[in-house]
Amino acid sequence: MPLNMIVLAKQVPDTANITCEAMKPDGTVNRGALPAIFNPEDLNALEMALQIRDEHGGHISVISMGPPAAADLLRDALFRGADKVILLTHRLFAGADTLATSYALARAVQSLGLPDIVLCGRQAIDGDTAQVGPQIAEKLGIPQVTYVDRVVELGERTVLVSRSTDRGSCRIRAPLPVLLTVVSTANNPRPPSVRRMMVFKRARTKTELMSSTQDYEEAGPLEASGLLIEEWGVDTIGADPNRCGMAGSPTKVKKVESVVISPREVKRIEPTQSGIAALVEELISEHILG
């Protein structure tokens, strides 16, 4: 049975690999200097969808909410095998907390038509909240299974998945449609396909066409050849502006403090047997080691 799937993906700053170049002299991170990447667990979600399509057939749409630059993520999704991509972008979406984000994404999913399975990463590495997936499921009125690391069995109208957390694992059977949040141990995402890159490297949003030196007239031919990345705004998804972005966010940031890492006095230990023996003796004499 072919399945209709929607994968929700976010472009995030690469907070996991902070290099010296991204550190400011005061020991804080220069967030602007971090590269924007495909949120890692969203890639696992896309891969899970691709594997389901490999086995059962189906259609995969990828939706990303973000600034115009998130079109890069959607091209990447096309390279990896997505059938359709949509960029949800509008100034009124800016400053959204998880509740407002889930509202906009749920509206976008409904506008596309409720699929059999909605997939997203367990959490994004910039916020680590893991809240948006369950909040979308609630708004869509469908069940959720979080921390999914495997689809065990896909039946006519049900799915059996394995849920894996630090407490253990269990199998969960849920009816379709369902929303799954996927963990990093689920799979190894396939690399972009070279053949698909040749086709989709020219895919552009209208905003990109307008801001480039290319003629805006290109939008027509691009659309005809399936290379125009759709951009959806507040009106496209019939959203209430009061529930989007900053206006729709009940949580407010009161204060932000940068974490300052101050170097300590470091004692160099030579990697020789005598150097290490002296260290062990020092730790024992100071009762650090028993």
Binding site: D97, D128, T129, A130, E138, S249
Partner: peptide, 21 residues
């Protein structure tokens, strides 16, 4: 894992803000 599964579902149903972790 339970709190992080339950609290967001509930916050969405109640239409209230939720701060994680």
């Amino acid at each position: 894992p339970t709190g992080r599964d339950l609290a967001p579902r509930l916050a969405s149903a109640l239409g209230v803000g939720l701060t994680a972790d």
